[in-house]
Amino acid sequence: MHRQLISHLAHADHPIASPVSAANLDRLLTRAKLPAGARILDLGCGEGAWLLRALELYPDATADGVDIGQEALASAAESAGRLGLSDRLRLHQVPADSFEATQPYDLVLCVGATHAFGALADALDGVRRHLRPGGLALVGEGFWERPPSKELLELLGSDPDEYAGLAGTVARARDAGYATVYAHTSTRDEWDEYEWSWTGTLTRWALDNPGPDGDEALAAADEHRDMWLDGYRDVLGFVTLLLRPTDR
């Protein structure tokens, strides 16, 4: 089972695909205060939950979703059809850092998908390419709530500089030429809801589908749960920044 399929299955009951509640997703999108006829882009859109909600909140907006996951994009298309939004949503199965657009966007999202570009600074540079003057970016990124142990870094295959603290994350955005105009820091409840959903939904699918795929999915759920409960819980945080480019 490839990584994108595992992720698609695990996010079935939490399509927001980040430790963010539906109410806080609405708050972030509403705070963007998009103009009439807004153009929206999501780089790493997954099942499209952020884009679909944005199209509901801004009835005259149009959107493009970019992802490499075939299953996720199929789910996004199905949801758009069910919600009557298909005519305002275009989906593209290409890497986020390879997407080319003919016109700039009023809002560009990259929530929990900055790894598609490399480091946060690379993602912010990639987002900037698609923004119109005065446009906004909505970027979700991890940060260290407290310094990680050597053991946790080894478990995650990470290094101390992969993330900064919360203040350092805002500073990294500033150094990349962005001003933070609003933000949401995910709560422990949001993290727990996300992680229990991710691991539990994948576990249920595995038990309902015995065989090699089910075994692989169950192993992935167990590994993820152990890494969370015994590792990064209360160490790794998540912040979603609403950013506006500056003149540097």
Rank of each mutant, 00 (worst) to 15 (best):
V111E: 04
P210T: 12
C45K: 00
R128Y: 11
D230A: 06
E100A: 15
W198F: 15
W196M: 11
W228C: 01
D189C: 05
L202R: 05
Y105S: 04
L85D: 04
D87E: 15
L207S: 13
A176F: 07
V127A: 07
L166Y: 12
P15I: 06
D175G: 06
D159I: 03
Y194I: 13
T102V: 04
A23K: 07
D60T: 15
R82I: 07
I6M: 09
G69F: 00
W228A: 00
D208N: 11
A12H: 12
T203L: 07
E141R: 10
L229C: 07
R90Q: 15
F117V: 11
D175Q: 13
D234T: 09
L34I: 06
D97I: 01
N209E: 01
E193I: 14
A17C: 05
I16C: 01
D64G: 03
L218W: 00
E47A: 15
P133G: 01
T203K: 12
L218Y: 01
G46R: 00
P147D: 10
P212T: 10
A221Q: 00
E47H: 13
A116H: 15
A32F: 02
S79V: 05
E141W: 06
P104N: 10
P15K: 08
F117M: 08
E151P: 00
R172Y: 02
Y105Q: 15
R146H: 05
F238T: 08
V66G: 01
A54N: 08
L242N: 05
R90D: 05
N209K: 02
P212Y: 02
V94N: 02
M1N: 08
F117S: 04
Q4W: 06
D161P: 00
F99T: 03
R174Q: 13
L5I: 02
A61C: 11
D26K: 14
D247R: 13
E141V: 12
G44T: 00
A38W: 01
E195F: 13
G81Y: 01
F117C: 03
D42Q: 08
D13A: 14
T203C: 06
T180D: 02
V235T: 15
A113E: 07
H224R: 14
A206I: 03
A63D: 09
G37R: 05
E100K: 12
T62A: 10
E56N: 07
G231I: 02
D192G: 00
L229A: 11
T114K: 04
E145M: 14
F99A: 08
L120G: 03
W205R: 11
D213M: 10
D122V: 12
H2K: 07
E195S: 05
L124N: 05
D106G: 08
L5Q: 15
R88I: 05
D13V: 11
V181D: 11
Y182W: 15
I6Q: 02
D215R: 11
A137M: 08
A137W: 09
F99P: 01
V139S: 06
Q70L: 11
E100V: 10
R188E: 13
Q70I: 05
L43T: 11
V111H: 04
S21T: 13
